[in-house]
Amino acid sequence: MNSLVLRTAARFLLPLLLVFSVVLLLQGHNEPGGGFVGGLVSASAFTLYAVAFGRDAALRAVGINLQVLAGLGVTIAILSGVPALVLSEPFLTGHWATVPIPGIGDVKIGTPLLFDIGVYCTVWGVALIMVLNLAEE
């Protein structure tokens, strides 16, 4: 679509939406949000970009093959369950560590976050595959 307003808006909205999707991803464990919604938001960010600049430009902006992205997501999600298996606990049992990060304070990081990141990548990739395939027709 050849619209100056849309192109300009899309250029600014893409990073903004991506930051928002990461915020959703990170707050998801205890508050509304999570990997699934975050992935959808980031997919819609690139969909907007595709509407403004075309499908190929959006694919270049993602920078990684979408199928590979989805596959990596599932792999990360599976890996998040592995620490529990090594400790011979039930698969996917959560493990947390408190990491002091200068300037922010103590941050709790755990395997459920890793799982959510996996979901984020999978949803991001799969949703974009579907939308961009439809855009191709």
């Binding site: 093959n65 590979v68 596959g71 997501g73 599932v74 792999t75 369950g81 298996l85 039930p90 698969f91």
Partner: peptide, 25 residues
């Protein structure tokens, strides 16, 4: 025992995920 129960699901799931990452090959 935990491992044995989840392996029949995990193995094909991992194979599917790795297969996706090898998309062009």
């Amino acid at each position: 025992m935990n491992l044995l129960l989840v392996l029949p699901i995990l193995i094909p799931l991992t194979a599917a995920a790795l297969g996706l990452t090898a998309w062009k090959r």
